[in-house]
């Protein structure tokens, strides 16, 4: 395998649980050294896909290659080349942080001495050196997550899977995990990250695959996905919510109203024309606006747009 080969290749992946199709013709290619986001609602199939890629679950159909090896026929090689940070803390809570890392090092066949040295190295790197002998059950959520991440990095993995790595963390814990992921990517690791947080995908991922009902409904950079919702938008915030409907009628194209924020939002084609046109139309109608702004669509809007398209 060379650096140019993709780190992950998935073709026509299917997985059924009884009658339910968790994955239904899932295709994805992830370039080496990139961060790939998998974005989708609960039950879209993100975790199932990660469990198959990390050899925890056998696929019903399709081809899955991770770090150059087929997950079905060469699972042992895949396991030697990946790291997995699952949704539940995959560490032994009764043991200390160092005991955990040393144990995982031995199970990675580093040998006793190297396993111990590696444990100390990782504890220091993730700011857990002082808590090394404390039982993990007494760790904070962020500390536990960092230990879990350290355990995923015993051998420098070629591909690291992060399944909703910051779910349940406070903003500080989330920032800590994000920093750790960024520094890994600088080291050349390919990262596949699932998340329900659009902001997280936007912040960390080079490319994002939007998953809905077991398949990839859209794939691209964050900017590409945003532009697929119909480009830029104009937001008009009013003093008086009662006038929302009147303003909505003035704006062209697909219009969305937000009563709580007293805001009307519309997709626009030509930025300047839309801005001047809206200002003139509001003045002519005698409506006072508190704020008028042009902006790129948020990933939230792109996401809703893309998954709605798939359902139709």
């Amino acid at each position: 395998m060379t650096d140019r080969d993709p780190a992950i290749v998935i073709e026509g992946l299917c997985k059924r649980y009884g009658e339910k199709r968790a994955l239904d013709g899932f295709d994805l290619t992830v370039g080496a050294g990139t961060v790939q986001g998998l974005l989708g609602p609960n039950g879209a199939g993100k975790t199932t896909a990660v469990r198959i890629m990390s050899t925890l679950l056998r696929p019903d159909g399709g081809r899955v290659e991770v770090a150059g090896a087929d997950v079905r026929t060469r699972a042992a090689e895949v396991r030697a080349r990946i790291g997995l940070l699952g949704q539940n803390a995959a560490v032994d809570e009764e043991l200390g942080g160092r005991q955990n890392l040393e144990m995982f090092g031995r199970l990675h066949h580093l040998g006793a001495r190297r396993a111990g040295a590696r444990a100390d190295e990782l504890l220091a790197r993730f700011g857990l050196a002082d808590a090394g002998s404390k039982a993990v059950a007494k760790y904070s959520g962020g500390m536990r997550r960092r230990l879990d991440l350290a355990a995923s990095l015993i051998r420098r993995p070629r591909v690291l899977f992060l399944d909703e790595p910051t779910t349940g963390l406070d903003p500080r814990g989330r920032a800590e995990v994000w920093d750790a992921v960024r520094s890994l990517v600088d080291g050349g690791t390919t990262v596949l990250l699932t998340t329900q947080y659009l902001e997280e995908a936007d912040q960390l991922a080079d490319r994002i695959a939007v998953i809905d009902r077991g398949r990839v409904v859209a794939e691209g950079t964050a900017d590409e996905l945003k532009s697929r919702t119909g480009g830029d938008r104009i937001d008009v915030v009013l003093r008086d919510a009662a006038q929302l409907a009147r303003v909505a009628a003035l704006l062209p194209g697909e219009v969305r109203m937000d009563e709580d924020r007293r805001m009307v939002s519309a997709a626009v084609a030509d930025r300047t024309a839309a801005l001047t046109g809206t200002v003139r139309a509001l003045a002519a109608a005698g409506i006072e606006a508190e704020d008028i702004a042009l902006r790129r669509p948020t990933l939230d809007e792109a996401f809703l747009h893309l998954t709605k398209g798939a359902a139709a």
Partner: peptide, 17 residues
């Protein structure tokens, strides 16, 4: 009930261990 068995199973160790 915990995730730790998942970690064991995703590592290159002997699965019977």
């Amino acid at each position: 009930g915990k995730g730790v068995v998942d970690r064991f199973r995703s590592m290159p160790m002997n699965s019977g261990a």
